[in-house]
Design a protein around this nucleic acid. Structure first.
Lengths: 238, 238
DNA sequence: GTCAACGGCATTGTCGACAATCTCATTGAC
DNA sequence: GTCAATGAGATTGTCGACAATGCCGTTGAC
C-alpha cells in the first residue's frame, strides 16, 4: 500500500500539466507523447518511473489505445523502455552511457559545424536570428517550457544547413535521447542564459565566417549538461 | 484494372517467400517485419510499392493488428513510409539522399574504426573470425539470404568494439536504412566475393594493429553499392 | 467537351471487450 | 523462520467489429 501512496503523489504532480490540449492540431497520440516528453524533460517523471496505460488514459481523457500509440512513439524516441507484459519505464542511463552519448553528439555536431557553408547567406541567417530572439525572450521570461522548445528549434535550424539530411536527423535524435539527462540544466537560470549567449556567439561566427569558433562552440555547447548529470550520479548507478 | 493486375503479379512474387515462420522464437510482429525486410532488401518489394494490411495479414496468416505492428516496426527502421489513411510505401531515396546517407555512413564508420583498440585482443578476434567464416561459407554456397544476415552480423560485431554503444547503434541503423539501396549488390556473386575479401582484410588489419588500413577499408567498404545505385538511377528521380 | 459534385468501394483507424501475463501478498510445509 | 507454491488483483496484449477516410469512376450541368 506504500506503493499506491507513492503513485498517487506522482500522479498529482503531473496532473498539473494538462498540456496535451495546447498542442493544437497535432494528432492526439503525438500530443500525448509530447506532453509526456515534457514531463520527462522537466523531471516530473523520474528515471525508472513506471508509466501505466490506464492512468495516462484517464489523465488525457483518451482511450488506452491512444495512450499505447503515444508510448510506442516515446519508445521510438528512446525516452522510455517497454518490457513485454510489464509496461513502460522512463529510460535510465549510467555514467558510462552518458559519456558515450555526449561523445557521439560532440563528434557529430563538430562534423556538422564543419560542413555548414560559411559565411552563411543572409537568407538563412535571418530565421536563425528570429529563433535566437525567441529563445532569448523565453529565457528573459523565465518560461522553461518555451526555452526548451526554442532551444530545440534553434539547433534544428542550425544543423539543417550542414547539407546532410541524415546527419541533421541523427543529431536531432541524439539530442532527444539526451533530454532525459539534460533536465537539471533547464531549471537554472544561469545555464539558460549561458545557452542563450552561446547561441548568439554561434550566430556571430556564422555571419563572419569563423569556422574554428563555430566548431568549438558546437563541440562545447552541452558539456555543462553532461558534467551536471555526472556530478549528481555516483559511479555505481545511473 | 491495370493496377489490380500489377498488384497480383507483385503478390505472387512475394508469396514464394513464406519466411515468417522460420524466424523461430521471434514474436510474430517481429517475424513479419523481418520477412518484409528481406522482401525489401532482395527487391521482391520495389521502391514506392504499396503494402496493404489485409493482403499481408492473409499472407502471414495473422490478424491485421499484428501486421500493423510489423509495419510500425518497419516504419521505425525507416524502410517504409506511412501516410495517414493512405497506407505504407516502400521508401524511396533520390540520388542526393543516397549520397548524403553514404557520406554519413562513411564518416561514422571511419570514426568508429579509429576508436577500435588495436591490435584487437584474441578473445575479441575469435568471434569475428567465426562470423567471417560464416559469411564466406554463405558466399560459397551462393545463399544470398545467409550472406545478408552474415554480413550484418560481422559489421555489428566489428563496430561493437569501438567503445561507444551509441555510435555502434547509429551505424547499424544507418546500415538498415541503406538496405533499400543495397540490394542490387547482393545479387552479384562478384560483389559478394569482394565483400568477403574485404572482411578478411579487416581481420588482418585488426590482428596486426594496422590502423590506417582498417580505417581505409571501413571507409571504402560500401562505395560499390552507392555507385551501383547511382548509376542505375538517373538524376531526376530516385 | 470540361469540370465539379456525388457516391461506391477499398483501405486504414479506433473502439470496447476479453484473454494472457505478471506481481505480490498469503498460505502452508518443513 | 524460511521458502516455495498458490491465487487474486492489477496491468498489458489481442481480437473482431465498426467508423472514418481517401481514391476514383460516374454523373450531370453548362
Amino acid at each position: 500500500m506504500a506503493d499506491a501512496a507513492r503513485n498517487d503523489v506522482a500522479r498529482n504532480d503531473i496532473a498539473w500539466n494538462d498540456s496535451a490540449r495546447d498542442e493544437g492540431a497535432l494528432p492526439l497520440p503525438a500530443a500525448i507523447a509530447a506532453a509526456l516528453e515534457e514531463d520527462i524533460v522537466f523531471g516530473r517523471l523520474h528515471t525508472r518511473e513506471r508509466l501505466i496505460e490506464e492512468e495516462l488514459a484517464e489523465r488525457f481523457r483518451a482511450t488506452r489505445h491512444t495512450v499505447r500509440q503515444a508510448l510506442a512513439e516515446l519508445e521510438r524516441m528512446r525516452l522510455i523502455e517497454r518490457i513485454p507484459h510489464r509496461g513502460a519505464l522512463v529510460k535510465a542511463y549510467n555514467p558510462a552511457e552518458v559519456r558515450q552519448l555526449y561523445a557521439l553528439r560532440e563528434m557529430l555536431e563538430t562534423q556538422a559545424a564543419a560542413l555548414i557553408p560559411l559565411p552563411l547567406e543572409e537568407a538563412a541567417l535571418a530565421p536563425l536570428r528570429g529563433l535566437q530572439q525567441k529563445h532569448a525572450a523565453a529565457v528573459a521570461a523565465g518560461d522553461a517550457r518555451a526555452v526548451f522548445r526554442a532551444d530545440l528549434a534553434f539547433h534544428r535550424a542550425l544543423f539543417a544547413h550542414c547539407g546532410n539530411l541524415f546527419l541533421a536527423e541523427t543529431i536531432e535524435e541524439l539530442g532527444q535521447r539526451a533530454q532525459v539527462i539534460r533536465y537539471a540544466n533547464l531549471r537554472s537560470r544561469s545555464s539558460m542564459e549561458w545557452a542563450r549567449d552561446q547561441h548568439a556567439a554561434m550566430l556571430g561566427a556564422l555571419e563572419r565566417g569563423e569556422r574554428g569558433a563555430l566548431v568549438a562552440l558546437c563541440a562545447a555547447h552541452f558539456a555543462p549538461a553532461r558534467e551536471a548529470y555526472l556530478s549528481q550520479h555516483p559511479a555505481l548507478l545511473g
